[in-house]
Write a protein that binds this DNA or RNA. Structure first.
Lengths: 248, 248
DNA sequence: ACAATATATGCAAAAAACCGCAAAAGCGAA
DNA sequence: TTCGCTTTTGCGGTTTTTTGCATATATTGT
């Protein structure tokens, strides 16, 4: 394993788990602890991570030391892994933005070969870090609140795509009102994405379930798959199962 | 084995495995390590791969490593302030990407009211942090090396704009060869931007001056204003003044 | 406080990179 | 073809980087 490869690997592990143990790393990479320690030291000097006794912590983990936020990141990681497992090579996929989507991008198999279309600036950047997938940014005016491109041009661009999947971050989901949002422009984008895709996957932490917002994006029956951090057998998800939604 | 054959082979291996070892290559191709090293060096200078101790890594695999973000940040700040002073409310402005552009975005007057059109994901995000300007992201396939959207759609979108200004980050500038780049896709974008604008401003640290790259973007006479960190009276800038370029 | 574990430091061996040089190969023109 | 010219390549010697080990020091949990 080349040195630079190790540094990449360490940062990747950090993004995924928010912490790494020196012992784990030296095992997995097959080098001595000394080498691992020197690697961590170098990354630490470059401000890429926080070195602590026994390993290292992710920079974002440490700087944003909001306990609630950390808890969410753990759950979003679970969601991301479940969602990533559903993606197969050759797929054309439309995605929205949101923090869950960013974690999803990080969790993708490095060998995956697929095409992602997105309106989210941050998601596009995160997808672009993947070694092999193709990323297409859908252009239009940037909505500052959501950091999404929105407008007639974007909708039109989406309409010209025939995607296998559409992955949407949940803002609010409810068995009665379906998927809802509070930004009219964003709703137009998501509607277009759903229309342009064969299957619709919604991802989000369970906190977003059973809540409603001002504007409706889609009927509950338009959603094919729902992914939360919960166990698929959690009773909280029963109402969604009854609406013929697959739960992962 | 011919030299061009070797270069081809190396890039092919790199696409397949995302990494190559110098020792492997010299074995498989039946040439000395020195030759391999020189091959890798050449490809590295052409920005085709990242050379590391013991071999090379694929570009897309390695781009997450932006440890030199702060490189010359002081000078880029000076440039940003000079450029920001030239922007007036009501203007329509096309911009490329690059670190200088990000600093420029931060340096804009908070009261400014203008419209920015860009192909750079990072620049779009930075512009979006500004309270009042309008940001339009130009969509297309994302080029992973440059984090710019490139392609026919993007070029077409740019052609449909009539901008007052076009602000380009300099990659290489020279009085003889003009503005040059090494990525064909990016060149197409920049050419389109120049064509769509009344005035062309180039910004970049003086290190980029008097250097050339493979592909020409624009003639020296197409450039109206040049902004570097240097004092406008610096003799290094004299050749550009003689070409009727305004120096700030 | 103490044992277990992690870190720092100096050191030496191995691997890789660098440098200059000369031989070899390729190339265009007479 | 042959001659001059440039480019490419391999080689020997030197320098730098990387790595693991041994030893000394520091930190942690009980």
């Amino acid at each position: 394993m080349l040195k630079e490869e190790r540094l990449e690997y360490i940062l990747h592990e950090l993004n995924l788990h928010n912490k790494v143990l020196s012992a784990d790393l030296s095992n997995k990479m097959g080098v001595s602890d000394d080498t691992v320690r020197r690697d961590l030291q170098e990354l630490s000097l470059d401000n890429k991570l926080i070195k602590v006794h026994g390993g290292a912590l992710s920079k974002s983990f440490h700087t944003a030391f909001d306990r609630e936020m950390v808890y969410e990141i753990e759950n979003k990681n679970i969601i991301a892994k479940k969602a990533a497992a559903l993606i197969q090579s050759g797929m054309y996929i439309l995605t929205s933005g949101g923090t869950s989507m960013l974690e999803f991008a990080k969790a993708l198999d490095p060998n995956l070969n697929a095409s992602f279309f997105t309106c989210s600036l941050n998601a596009a950047i995160e997808f672009s870090h993947h070694p092999s997938i193709e990323v297409v940014m859908i252009g239009d005016k940037v909505s500052k609140d959501s950091m999404l491109t929105t407008g007639a041009n974007a909708v039109q661009a989406i309409e010209s795509i025939q995607a296998d999947l559409c992955i949407l971050g949940i803002n609010s989901l409810d068995t009665q009102f379906g998927l809802s949002e509070n930004d009219w422009e964003v709703v137009q984008i998501k509607k277009a994405m759903i229309k342009a895709s064969k299957k619709v996957i919604c991802i989000g932490i369970s906190e977003k379930l059973n809540s409603q917002q001002k504007i409706k994006v889609a009927d509950i029956k338009d959603i094919d798959i729902l992914i939360t951090e919960l166990d698929p057998n959690d009773p909280l998800l029963d109402p969604y199962k009854k609406n013929e939604i697959l739960i992962y």
